[in-house]
Design a protein around this nucleic acid. Structure first.
Lengths: 114, 114
DNA sequence: CAGGATCCTTATAGATACTG
DNA sequence: CAGTATCTATAAGGATCCTG
């Protein structure tokens, strides 16, 4: 762990820059985002109401927003069945599962520190 | 990946509940929090101004707040030297480094997806 | 059932100015 | 240098109502 070379750009010694809040990290910095990935990943697929039941402290609109963001980020797939009553299934995509895998150690450790 | 047993509490199949936003996860859900852990962890110790230089898009007050929260959570240590001009060094604690280790795969992967 | 639209409240961050 | 205090702007989340 060397120190900064003083003339380097305002980023990291190894050239990696975490400065801007971009991509997945900014998506994860939303309320309940981490938990949602974990919850969806714990199942093959889930319906909206099921997700709500797993995260009772989050409001409908918050969950809805997170799911939209995840879908746009390609982390979650949304499958709509045109039945009556309507049915929608959410599941992690391959990318979403990559994320989940990297989140798991974090969540386990976090749970153990409480 | 089994599905819910329907009668289970509004948590996870395996009994794990991620519902409330608590502890480390809520600390991490703050702006720049993840990056800060990573930046501090990339050095043995850092002064306030150095941290600012590594995260130029974050304001002084935001960084200050994050550092306070980290210190309170026992993730970062703050060492003050009573010199003139004053000098303060921030470093990850053992716990903070545990966290950093679990964050690293996430950050690497996140960077690769951009 | 799934969730969008709206309105409202709170949380959070940023700018600025100032101090030990 | 290393912040804190204050204020303001904005974003984010929650409650409620409503619809395909």
């Amino acid at each position: 762990m060397a120190d900064t070379t003083a003339d380097a750009p305002a980023c990291d010694v190894d050239g990696t820059c975490y400065c801007p809040l971009t991509g997945v990290i900014s998506t994860l910095s939303q309320k309940y985002a981490i938990q949602l990935v974990s919850i969806i990943g714990a199942h093959d697929s889930l319906r909206f109401a099921e997700i709500e039941a797993h995260l009772p402290t989050a409001s409908t609109s918050t969950i809805s927003k997170r799911l939209d963001e995840f879908e746009e980020a390609g982390l979650v797939s949304r499958t709509q069945y045109n039945e009556i009553p309507p049915r929608v299934e959410y599941a992690l995509t391959k990318d979403g599962d990559e994320l989940r895998a990297r989140l798991e150690p974090l969540l386990e450790w976090a749970a153990s520190t409480e």
